[in-house]
């Protein structure tokens, strides 16, 4: 049980938002899109391990092979 993952994702979202608006102000739309993609990938790498853990623990709880 780790609540800091929530704050980690919120922090990533805030940083991506700030970077996005800064880059947009400078006028580089294509970099702004890349920043969003990087943020999504970062969150996905954080989440995917938790999802695997979840499947494993459901399997253990219900005594499935």
């Amino acid at each position: 049980m780790n609540i800091d993952l929530i704050f980690k994702i919120a922090g990533v979202a805030i940083i991506v938002s700030v970077l996005h608006s800064v880059v947009k102000q400078v006028g580089k739309e294509e970099y702004a899109w890349l920043i969003t993609l990087t943020g999504v990938l970062l969150v996905l790498t954080l989440v995917i391990r938790l999802v695997a853990d979840f499947f494993q623990s459901v399997r253990a709880t219900f005594q499935l092979p």
């Binding site: 929530i6 994702i9 969150v43 938790l50 853990d53 623990s57």
Partner: peptide, 21 residues
């Protein structure tokens, strides 16, 4: 950031599951 919100809701749902399981 709707896409980040999706990741966050996924994580919080999973953590509630981990508390109950």
């Amino acid at each position: 950031r709707p896409e980040m919100a999706l990741g966050l809701s996924l994580v919080s749902g999973l953590l509630v599951f981990f508390l109950v399981l």
